[in-house]
C-alpha cells in the first residue's frame, strides 16, 4: 500500500467570483480581465492549507455557480472580443508540432516514471528541506531530459502517445512548482508537513505563495496576503489556531 494523490491544493489564484487575480501595482487582488477558473484548478482559498473531506465538491458547486453569475453580470449580448494578434494560436500549434515529431532518445513513459519516483520519494507526505532540495535538483535534470523526448505515434487520430507527452510537459511544470514551493515554505501548515519545521509560523509564512516556473529548476516567487475575514458581520471571524486532533 502507498499513498496516492487525492486532491491538489492551491491552484490558479481567484477571487470568490471565479475571476483570476494577479498582483499588479501594489494590489494583491488585481483581476485578470476575462480569465476565470473554478474547481480543483482554482484557488479561491476557502480550504486553507488542507482541503477537508467533501469540501471540493462544495467548492465546485458554489463557485461554479458564482462564476456563471459573474459572467452574466459582466458580459452583454453582442459585446466584442479584444482583437487577436495575427499569430494567435501559433504557440499552441508549434508545441503540438514539436512534440508530435519529437525524435529524441527518451520515451515519454521513462521520463514520467522518473518524475513520479522523485515526487513520491522526495516530496512525500512528510518532507524535510533536505529531501525537497535533493528532489528539486533531480527533477530539474529530469525536466532537462524532456528536450530529448521521443514520441513514436505521429498520427492525428486519437494519439495518446502525443497527449501523454503534452501532459507530461504540464506535469513537469506542476511538479517543479510543487516541490520548489514546498522547499521554500519553512513551516508545517495543513497538509504541508515538514519534519524539520514541525510548527506553523504565522509570523513569516501566513501568506499565499505565487510561483512562476521559468524552466527546469528555475522558479520565481512572490506572495499574496491571506484573506482572514468573512465578507459580512453575521459571524465573528475565527483566528487561525493549532490543530490539536
Amino acid at each position: 500500500m502507498q499513498p496516492t494523490v487525492h486532491y491538489n491544493m492551491g491552484g490558479v489564484p481567484c477571487n470568490f467570483h471565479g475571476e483570476v487575480v494577479a498582483p499588479r501595482g501594489g494590489d494583491p487582488d488585481a483581476v485578470v480581465p476575462g480569465l476565470m477558473a473554478v474547481g480543483e484548478a482554482a484557488c479561491v482559498s476557502v480550504h486553507g492549507a488542507n482541503r477537508l473531506g467533501s469540501n471540493s465538491l462544495l467548492d465546485l458547486v458554489v463557485f461554479g455557480r458564482q462564476a456563471a453569475r459573474r459572467c452574466a453580470e459582466l458580459q452583454r449580448p453582442g459585446m466584442r472580443h479584444a482583437p487577436l494578434p495575427g499569430d494567435a494560436g501559433e504557440l499552441a500549434v508549434s508545441r503540438l508540432d514539436r512534440l508530435r515529431n519529437a525524435q529524441g532518445s527518451r520515451p515519454t513513459a521513462a521520463i514520467r516514471l522518473e518524475m513520479q519516483k522523485i515526487m513520491q520519494m522526495d516530496a512525500a507526505v512528510f518532507r524535510t528541506g533536505e529531501s525537497l532540495e535533493e528532489g528539486a535538483r533531480k527533477l530539474a535534470q529530469t525536466f532537462e531530459s524532456f528536450a530529448d523526448v521521443r514520441v513514436s505515434d505521429r498520427s492525428l487520430i486519437w494519439n495518446t502517445d502525443l497527449v501523454e507527452t503534452m501532459e507530461l510537459e504540464n506535469l513537469l511544470l506542476q511538479a517543479t512548482a510543487t516541490i520548489q514551493s514546498a522547499a521554500n515554505r519553512t513551516e508545517s501548515r495543513g497538509a504541508h508537513a515538514r519534519e524539520d519545521f514541525p510548527q506553523r509560523d504565522d509570523e513569516h509564512c501566513l501568506r499565499h505563495t505565487l510561483v512562476w516556473v521559468e524552466g527546469p529548476g528555475r522558479v520565481r516567487f512572490d506572495y499574496r496576503p491571506v484573506h482572514l475575514n468573512t465578507l459580512t458581520d453575521e459571524v465573528q471571524t475565527i483566528p487561525p489556531k493549532a490543530r490539536t486532533y
Binding site: 513513459a109 513514436s152 505515434d153
Partner: peptide, 11 residues
C-alpha cells in the same frame, strides 16, 4: 506495454 514496448498502443 505502452510504456516499454510500443508507445503507439492506444486504449
Amino acid at each position: 506495454i505502452k510504456g516499454t514496448i510500443d508507445s503507439s498502443l492506444t486504449f
